[in-house]
Design a binder for these strands. Structure first.
Lengths: 362, 362
DNA sequence: ATGAAAGCGCTAACAT
DNA sequence: ATGTTAGCGCTTTCAT
């Protein structure tokens, strides 16, 4: 009805201005909530906006504001293959095309990160662009993407220890925040968990249950989280008079947890407690224990780590150390937006405290 | 070194042009791979690009090309709460903040979708922007986002049957493709699985194993996929001389699968086969069966659906019907890009055939 | 408080 | 084959 002679493209500021009988600048002010606009005119403009069905063109706005209102959410790895994704599902389903992305996203962990990120971003009118950076080439694309101004900064979830991406980003002067401390020190903000404290919680719980022959299935030892969880566990055991505890290294996958449990059981048939460095491996351990006729928790108590969905899927449900992934992801996002607002602010780190969640397995 | 008097902002086309001693247009041509540029000059330009460290500004480009080179990947639902996510994990971990997003992304299903989408998009220089649309307000934001030109089209994964988003999008003349057929017919492209065929495969497998007292744990019956899987199962059973089969409705969560299995077992203690409409429920069923002293598959055979990571996490690993989620997601993406290339092309649907995957449970 | 006008960096006619 | 030029739609001084 109120359509003019235009037929083509979406309405522009110009159209709204004409309809409202004011200038583009005024419309712009109203839309961006800048004060100093007569309330009456504001109303007229708002009318015109809804009549014309106007929606501001984001590219045009970005061109002048130099902000994309988007951040890259990057899942990053060090190499091409090397199955050791952060908390890989260990899945070999047909859907698992052997690709990095397939492995990574099969894990509920990333879903939790996404949740935390989106929940923080959304009320602020920003959105995450998903990117993978598992090859050198893909990493360059991430850098290019940011340099093009397609995203204002990057949130990085690394699956490998020696990930070069954080270094590349800081070198290029791009804003980025990590989930988990980088293996080599990089002047960059990150959030992380007090892994050692978590492992201590697990060890103490096992000890308090009167387990005396406790073993651990560690995570990959080239990953900081894997190292820290093991260190925390060992320290606590030592402090309680157990200088030696059997250890089998896993890769954070269910499969590797099963294999590790088999080894442990073969070498120490009498063990009565197991600390698995994540839930997936804890679940695998439970399976193996049951196959060997051990009851959980009566014969062998099992404690996991993360409080992922695997902990609840397991029978019995896993007693585990909760990692508040969603909150950590939200905080990581907050750190990034802070940095964007104040580009000169120094890098910081925020460490979260884990929490023991007691369920049926220990 | 080759820096001029500029100190501020990123290098622009103008800078490169000056460095190469040519015009902006020529540089643009080289960068966009347009022919008709002297190879020698191309080389000079390329040099200039790398010397200046030039990266094209995406906003400026989008402004003129009217393309964002991004698509919205929307996880959509019908209402605010109503826990019935598509294939909810049934998790109640502390990480599960009760939020829609938390529930949705706890499920490996979405990870598989993301994988398929990214793998198709990436080689084409495009990226997915993650959005949730679980409330009326969030849906409006998705529509606005697209109208602003922030994304060129939308990929929609609905968690509910009566999702209004597809309708909103088509009304607004925006390009969109769905994963799974909409509950009410909407002139929009989608990919889907031949759910009935999948259920048939499951039923025939159970029958071929000489199961005679077969029950099913269905999905939510207000979801097309839930209906179709049940219908396919029943038809096949009937065709094989089983006019009646016990059914318990589940919600695609592990928990609901457990509850359904309890009911089934109470009413039909002698059953010897179960078809669960998804793996999560199948896993729950296995747990309950074992608790009731039934061996799987010796006493009761169980077949799941999806071939999700849950199928492999289960003990015994689930025999299941594989849904090629990654390929379906890639095809969905292809349909969208097709549509963007040819906006007038009619809506189409692509239906994928499921496949039986035999493992330990049946 | 409002308007006029100058770009933001790029692509795409059009001209040569 | 290359250069010139005119915008794309918006924000933002700078006048008024």
């Amino acid at each position: 009805m109120t359509d003019d002679l235009r037929s083509a493209g979406a309405p522009t500021l110009e159209d709204v201005a004409r309809a409202a009988g004011v200038s583009r600048a005024t419309v712009s002010r109203v839309i961006n909530g800048v004060r100093n606009v007569d309330p009456a005119i504001q109303e007229v403009v708002r009318q015109a906006v809804s009549v014309t069905g106007y929606a501001p063109n984001r590219a045009a706005r970005s061109l002048v504001t130099r902000r994309a209102d988007a951040v890259a959410l990057v899942v990053s790895g060090a190499g091409v293959e090397a199955g050791a994704d952060r908390e890989g599902s260990g899945s070999r389903s047909a859907g698992d095309q052997g690709s990095f992305t397939a492995q990574v996203f099969a894990d509920p962990f990333f879903g939790r990160v996404v949740t935390g990120v989106v929940n923080y971003l959304r009320p602020r009118g920003m959105h995450p662009v998903l990117m993978f950076a598992e090859t050198s080439r893909a990493r360059d694309e991430v850098v290019a993407y940011l340099r093009q101004g397609s995203a204002d900064g990057a949130l990085i979830v690394s699956t490998h220890a020696e990930d070069p991406l954080p270094g590349l980003l800081t070198e290029a002067g791009l804003a980025a925040v990590l989930f988990a401390r980088p293996a080599r020190p990089v002047p960059i903000s990150y959030v992380d968990l007090a892994h050692q404290d978590g492992a201590r919680l697990a060890a103490e719980h096992l000890l308090a249950r009167d387990c005396r022959r406790i073993a651990t299935i560690s995570g990959p030892l080239d990953v900081p989280a894997g190292q820290a969880r093991l260190a925390g566990f060992r320290d606590t055991m030592a402090r309680h008079g157990h200088p030696y505890t059997p250890i089998a290294e896993g890769q954070f996958t269910q499969e590797s947890g099963e294999a590790a449990m088999e080894r442990l059981l073969a070498a120490h048939p009498d063990l009565d407690g197991v600390f698995a460095a994540n839930d997936l491996m804890g679940m695998g351990a439970c399976h193996v224990l049951r196959e060997h006729g051990r009851r959980v928790p009566e014969d062998v108590a099992v404690v996991g780590f993360d409080d992922s969905s695997a902990a609840l899927a397991c029978r019995p449900p896993l007693t585990t150390v909760r990692q508040p992934v969603e909150e950590m992801a939200a905080e990581m996002t907050r750190l990034l937006l802070d940095r964007l607002a104040r580009p000169t602010s120094p890098a910081t780190s925020v460490i979260f405290e884990p929490e023991l969640v007691v369920r049926g397995s220990a």
